[in-house]
């Protein structure tokens, strides 16, 4: 298990290294953003570029980049959007908004999703099951900006319950802030709820038809007891890893939702850095997103083994 984990982590680092390398090379092949002669920051930017090796061959530039990242955790400074500011510092400042909104969203949607899934599985092939399954299908298919529009139009505009956009400021735990986050939280939740409903339903229907469930009933457990003690436990083998995966994923946020509700988070920073374009910021957040994606994959895989020791990790298939 440990060996497998270490293997996976090492491979993740390798993958990350290759992806960042490719991204870096492709970015540095482009001409750096133009600095106007009258720009007050011109000298700083040019000195900085000189230090980053803009006039040297690209492999050397990559060496300089890696060295500064690994030794000083210096990801460069923003050269377009927030001129002269440390990229990593900017990123850290944007982090809380994303994490909080996404955290609320999954805290809200995981229980609802699982309960709906259980409900559908227990009432399999009744109208409740069909309704829930069809709805899940529909919700998963519809793009998130459609929910955002419906929520903004109905709740914010017609009913006036919530503000259109997230409140600016850093008082993340006040009531006003919470209310202003709710539309974004709701818009994010639809997809997650549907995802969990679908997984839970699929897993639970499979478990409910297995023979040990029959045995549990024969030995005298009621249906509820059998479901809670035997079926749910087995079904958690699949659900828990995906919960872990979701918790890792809260940091990356949703580009579209953050743009619509103007959440001052990582996703919006990323979109802005693409449109600006602000390359150091872009490379930094790319590295972040890539590592989050890879990490979530590893956590999901390893947690399978942790939850259910029968699933042997690292063995040849």
């Amino acid at each position: 298990m440990l060996k497998y984990t270490i293997q996976r982590l090492l491979f993740m680092l390798l993958t990350l290294f290759i992806i960042i390398g490719m991204c870096f090379v492709l970015i540095r092949l482009l001409p750096p953003p133009y600095v106007a002669p009258e720009d007050p920051h011109k000298e700083v930017i040019e000195a900085r570029r000189e230090a980053m090796g803009y006039n040297k061959p690209i492999p050397v530039q990559f060496g300089i980049f890696l060295k500064s990242v690994l030794t000083e955790w210096d990801w460069g400074i923003s050269d377009k959007m927030y001129v002269g500011q440390d990229v990593f510092g900017l990123f850290v400042k944007k982090m809380p908004a994303t994490v909080i909104v996404n955290l609320y969203s999954i805290l809200l949607s995981i229980p609802i999703g699982i309960i709906l899934g259980i409900f559908a599985a227990l009432k399999k092939n009744t109208w409740i099951d069909h309704a829930i399954s069809t709805l899940t299908m529909v919700v998963i298919s519809v793009p998130s900006f459609v929910y955002a529009f419906l929520i903004q139009y109905i709740f914010s505009y017609k009913l006036g319950w919530f503000p259109f956009l997230m409140k600016s400021g850093t008082d993340y735990f006040t009531w006003d802030m919470f209310v202003s986050m709710l539309p974004a939280v709701m818009a994010l939740s639809f997809g997650v709820i549907a995802g969990f409903t679908r997984t839970t339903r699929a897993e639970l229907t499979e478990v409910l038809t297995s023979e040990f469930m029959l045995l549990a009933r024969t030995k005298g457990l009621t249906k509820t007891q059998a479901t809670v003690r035997h079926a749910m436990k087995n079904c958690m083998v699949v659900i828990l890893p995906s919960i872990f995966g979701n918790f890792i994923g809260i940091m990356s946020g949703s580009l579209i939702i953050e743009k619509i509700f103007s959440i001052p988070g990582v996703g919006q920073l990323y979109i802005n850095s693409i449109n600006a374009p602000d390359y150091p910021l872009f490379i930094m957040i790319t590295a972040f997103y890539t590592s989050i994606g890879l990490l979530a994959g590893i956590v999901v895989d390893i947690s399978y083994g942790l939850i259910d020791p029968r699933i042997r990790m690292g063995s040849k298939k």
């Binding site: 993958t15 992806i19 490719m22 990323y270 693409i274 790319t286 890539t290």
Partner: peptide
């Protein structure tokens, strides 16, 4: 595996 790690936006 490596390719699948690259986010699509990137």
């Amino acid at each position: 595996d490596i390719l699948s790690g690259v986010p699509f936006v990137v």
